[in-house]
Structure formats: C-alpha cells, structure tokens
C-alpha cells in the first residue's frame, strides 16, 4: 500500500474521526513495529465490544502488532466473537460467513497473486475454534491440501462463545457446556498434529501469556506461508465468560493449564521452512 493513499486531504482533518487521524499519524504501516513497541503507536485494533479480560481480544491485539507487513496484509475472519472485533481493524479484512474463511482466503490469495505478481500481499485467515476445527474444517484442511500460501490462525477459546457458550471440538474432554450437558464425550481435536501430517510447513501452538514468543510464531506463520505453503498457528485464549472465571485470571488460567499438562506450547517446522526461517532471522540480526 502506498502510504499517501490514506493521508487525509488538507482541510478535512477536523471532520475525520479521531481514531482515523491517529491511525494516519501514528499507525504502524511501513514502520516495522512489533509487540515490544506496543503502547507507543496507534494500534491496528480499535475499541471493540468483547468482554473484559477476553483472552481472544488480547491475542488478536498481539497478533495484529506482530504482522510483519501490515500495510500489505489482508485478513479473512469468520463468524464468532472475533467477528465483533474485526470491523475495528485497520487492515482490509473480510467477514464472509461461518467457517468459510480458508476458502475465501484461497480465492483472495490467488487473486492478489494475479494482480500483484511482484508484490507481497499476505493473506491471513484468523478465526475461532468453531470456525476452524468444526464447521470450517473441510475448507481449512483443503486449503492445506492444495498448498495455498495462506496463514491460518485459530483463536482457540475452547467453546462457541459468541452463541452463548456451547461445546466445540476444541473443548477439553469432560467439559460441561451447552450442548454437552453431561460433559464433552471426546478429546480436544489435535489440529496442530493434523496440520503437521497434512503438510503444513510450519505449525505452532502458543498463547498470549508469552507475548514475544507469540509474536515470533505469528511472524513465522506468515513468512513461511508467503514463501513455502500453508501454515497453522493455534493460539490458546481462555474465555472468562463461558468458562466462568474472573476476568483478571485469563493469563493465570493459561499457566495453570500448562502446569497441568493440558496445554503445551510447541512448534513443528519442516526442514524447508527451517532453512527459510534461519535465513530470514539471521538476515534480520
């Protein structure tokens, strides 16, 4: 994106919303900013209607700050809590329907390749666990099978939160939620391992409890997708509302699950991806 495009025309400063003015003057486009710089620039996410203490909102905020190329990134979202936040995101983003984010992203990425063969346009699918592992699983998996150059990020709050707290494929076994009144009967879907098996070049599981490692994962997810093929990042973002804990406990919950062994940060990197990352990360130093 040419930065001149979104500059405010002289004489219109006063009628543009404050948030937009701030974004133009202090936004992160083309500045190579990251998570460490948070608090010093206008974030790509604007005030959103998600719950206090929302792990998903926190994750989304960190993910957006980690984008390696925000001025040329297009996000495809899906229905769910995150779809309430996306209208306030300062990069182009599409909400089409529930679960079809990876299909939309496939068409979009190929279209952008046709239109901008010389330019890098990152397409990132960011959706909840219901959209990624349940209703949209076929489209997620097929985008991987087809080796689409798109980064898939799951915001895993282990429930259908937006519809009122129903059990999802990513809920841990035994969890009592709506539609699993006697407790969930089968284990959490091991999508990272499935992603690895079907050939995602980079697969990672992270959480907002560790912002800088998460940033690294987000960047790797996008950079490998750009150059090699599909990548998958699963971000554990507990939901205080539906799992009924206090908003200030969101990060403590992650740490507790880590201690219990029911949540584990991990990365699977193919040799090809490792080579690329070594080259890119060394080049940066």
């Amino acid at each position: 994106m040419n930065k001149n495009l979104f500059k405010i025309s002289p004489g219109f400063e006063d009628i543009m919303p404050a948030e937009y003015r701030e974004l133009v003057h202090d936004g992160p486009y083309g500045k190579n900013l990251g998570v460490s710089d948070l608090g010093t620039f206008k974030e790509l996410l604007e005030e959103h209607p998600l719950c206090a203490g929302c792990g998903l909102a926190l994750s989304l905020r960190l993910i957006l700050a980690s984008l390696p190329n925000p001025e040329d990134t297009i996000i495809v979202g899906s229905t769910g809590c995150s779809s309430l936040a996306f209208p306030q995101v300062g990069v182009h983003n599409i909400h089409s329907l529930f679960g079809n984010q990876n299909a939309v992203a496939s068409g979009l990425k190929r279209a952008l390749k046709l239109r901008f063969p010389e330019k890098t346009k990152d397409v990132v699918a960011i959706a909840g666990d219901g959209a990624t592992a349940d209703i949209g699983l076929d489209m997620v998996m097929h985008s991987w099978f087809r080796r689409e150059n798109i980064a898939t990020i799951m915001l895993d709050n282990e429930a259908y939160a937006n519809t009122g707290g129903q059990e999802s494929g990513m809920s841990p076994q035994g969890t009592v939620l709506y539609m699993a009144p006697k407790g969930k009967k089968f284990p959490k879907i091991s999508l990272p391992e499935i992603a690895r098996e079907v050939g995602c070049a980079y697969v990672a599981v992270g959480s907002p409890a560790q912002p800088r490692p998460l940033e690294k994962m987000v960047r790797r997810t996008i950079l490998v997708a750009r150059e090699i093929g599909p990548t998958y990042l699963q971000v554990f973002c507990p939901c205080p509302t539906n799992y009924k804990f206090k908003p200030q406990e969101t990060v403590a919950k992650i740490k507790q699950r880590e201690k219990e062994g029911t949540f584990q940060t991990r990365e699977y990197i193919t040799l090809e991806a490792q080579k690329l990352l070594t080259k890119l990360e060394e080049g940066k130093k």
Partner: peptide
C-alpha cells in the same frame, strides 16, 4: 480487499 486503498472500516463500536 487488496490494501491498495484505505481500510475504511476502522471505526469505534
């Protein structure tokens, strides 16, 4: 949706 024009949907609430 190509990030070659302004991301106009940036809005509060």
């Amino acid at each position: 949706m190509d990030m070659e024009n302004v991301p106009v949907r940036h809005m509060r609430d």
